[in-house]
Design a protein around this nucleic acid. Structure first.
Length: 491
RNA sequence: GGCGCAUUCGUCUAGCGGCCCAGGACGCCGCCCUCUCAAGGCGGAAAUCAGGGGUUCGAAUCCCCUAUGCGCUACCA
């Protein structure tokens, strides 16, 4: 059997930050769509008006864009099934028409119970250890009683009448067949007292109207799948295929949350991760290409993605591995590309007045730090001495192991003299002449170069000395040598 | 409590009955390279395949039970 037209969707609710787990679900949906030449739709599920967080819709969309996950239909781009925001679709009456249909067909009923009353019923059931679902008192109301309650005009909700007996099964694309007893399912609410549909109704109605072929969502939705299947049945809609993806957990095996550090995709962006690295890392959380391939292009992912290779157990988010992968991608960039990505971070993190306005200079610095940074945000600290006027460091650091102050001073003076006399300032010639000086002084390379390293950068760990000197340029080098000599000389 | 899902190195995973006394990657350790730091190369430790029963000539792979973890159990999604 060939797969019918693939139409999948990502249905976030704008109630918080674009969580890493939900974005991974979006990625899988997107890959699935691209692999099959289908459509990837974004639909905003904002039916919970109370928990709406201003700006979160924008953040969710921004994080998808940052990761290169383009949606074919949805907010901002629209499409043949617009609108793609449920609060707007609500105005069209699509959910109420469905609810009316269910009410007329006897698949739903109005419930007038207060939350307190319901809580009592549930408490009693727990106490008596009743195994079946909580029976809603309003399900047994007579027509006359209903008319009375309606006349009172109090608030009410609409509940779906789950079948009282039998079972509901789903052939899950990832987990296989799963079956539930209908008698333990309760009559869930489909229209809230504020008139908005709940997730269950809105989701089913929109997936049907938007002709969604595959519902690929996180595992936490598996328990509500029988509700959805019964809704499709009662509404007379052909159900889509379902697949429940593994969840992403924190290091303590609990659902990933703020306590585990960054959970928002945008935090990763701001912390200096490359979108292609995060994307590659995320795709490996619950999916594998084969027994060895880990670093791969987007194209490779699209070509090879399949639900069959999605794993079942929940995955723990390993920051260490992400960091490693970010380094891999950082090193793969061309120096020019890296410089461009680094610029905003340097502008943000470098002290005022040190901004690398000279792009050519920055272009020469970048190759020196490329294999030393793990995050874009590492750059400012690693390059600061290239931009500073006067270095800050403890003069004692100039004195290397096995040396004394006098010897260090002498080494600096001899080096300075050699640098003055240096015909050129390329790293090969610098190395040649300075190695000779070091040998004359009877110093080990690590000692002599150690002195120079601290004098020129203020650091004990830097990129290779001669390349660094060549980039710094003659004037800065001579000035810093002079400054070091000054710091070491007795006052 | 009920319902459901899951269970291979610390972590991500490969494995869909014999190729596995279990492969790759991150991390960790050691060596090499080396002016420091990285990067890189090489090597190593690390999983009695949750436990127990079956099925089979043969099981990490199939079945059952138990344990553990997680999810759901809202007028949240």
């Amino acid at each position: 059997m060939t797969t019918p037209t693939v139409r999948v969707r990502y249905a976030p609710s704008p109630t918080g930050q674009p969580h890493i787990g939900t974005v991974r679900t979006a990625l899988f949906n997107w890959l699935f769509a691209r692999h099959h030449g289908g459509k990837f739709i974004v639909r905003v599920e904002d039916t919970d008006q109370e928990r709406l967080v201003p700006g979160s819709q924008e953040n969710i969309l921004a994080s998808l864009q940052w990761l290169g996950i383009q949606w074919d239909e949805g907010p901002e781009v629209d499409g043949p099934y617009a609108p793609y925001i449920q609060s707007e679709r609500q105005k069209l009456g699509v959910y109420h028409r469905a609810a009316e249909q269910l009410l007329r067909g006897g698949h739903a009923y109005r419930c007038y119970c207060t939350r307190e009353q319901l809580e009592e019923v549930r408490a009693l059931q727990r106490e008596q250890k009743v195994q079946t679902r909580p029976k809603d008192p309003c399900s047994a109301l007579s027509d006359a009683q209903r008319r009375d309650r309606e006349a009172e005009g109090g608030p009410s909700v609409v509940r779906f009448a789950m079948p009282a007996a039998g079972t509901t099964s789903v052939q899950d694309l990832i987990r296989g067949e799963v079956t539930w007893q209908n008698e333990v399912q309760d009559d869930f609410i489909i229209i809230k007292s504020d008139g908005f549909p709940t997730y269950h109704l809105a989701n089913v109605v929109d997936d049907y109207l938007m002709e969604i072929s595959h519902v690929l969502r996180a595992e936490e939705w598996l328990p509500s799948t029988p509700r959805h299947i019964q809704l499709y049945r009662a509404l007379g809609y052909p159900p889509p295929l379902f697949g429940h993806m593994p969840m992403i957990l924190g290091p303590d095996r609990a659902k990933l949350s703020k306590r585990h550090g960054a959970t928002s995709t945008l935090e990763y962006r701001d912390n200096g991760y490359l979108p292609e690295a995060l994307r590659n890392f995320m795709v490996l959380l619950g999916w594998s290409l084969d027994d060895k391939t880990e670093v791969m292009s987007l194209d490779t992912m699209v070509q090879n993605f399949s639900l069959e290779r999605v794993s079942k157990p929940a995955a723990i988010f390993d920051q260490e591995k992400l960091l490693w992968m970010n380094g891999v991608y950082l090193r793969q960039l061309s120096p020019q590309e890296l410089a461009g990505r680094l610029l905003p971070f340097l502008e943000r993190d470098l002290d005022q007045g040190l901004l690398p306005v000279d792009l050519d200079y920055l272009g020469r610095i970048v190759p020196l730090i490329q294999e030393r940074i793990k995050l874009l945000s590492d750059a400012a600290d690693l390059t600061r001495y290239f931009f500073q006027g006067e270095l800050e460091y403890d003069p004692a650091n100039l004195v290397q192991k096995g040396m004394d102050a006098a010897g260090t001073l002498a080494a600096l003076q001899r080096a300075l003299a050699a640098l003055h006399a240096a015909p050129g300032f390329e790293h090969a010639t610098l190395e040649e002449s300075l190695r000779a000086v070091g040998a004359e002084l009877g110093l080990a390379p690590r000692q002599f170069f150690g002195v120079l390293r601290v004098a020129l950068t203020g650091r004990t760990a830097t990129p290779p000395l001669f390349e660094t000197m060549a980039v710094l340029g003659r004037q800065r080098v001579l000035d810093r040598m002079q400054a070091a000599i000054g710091r070491l000389s007795p006052a």
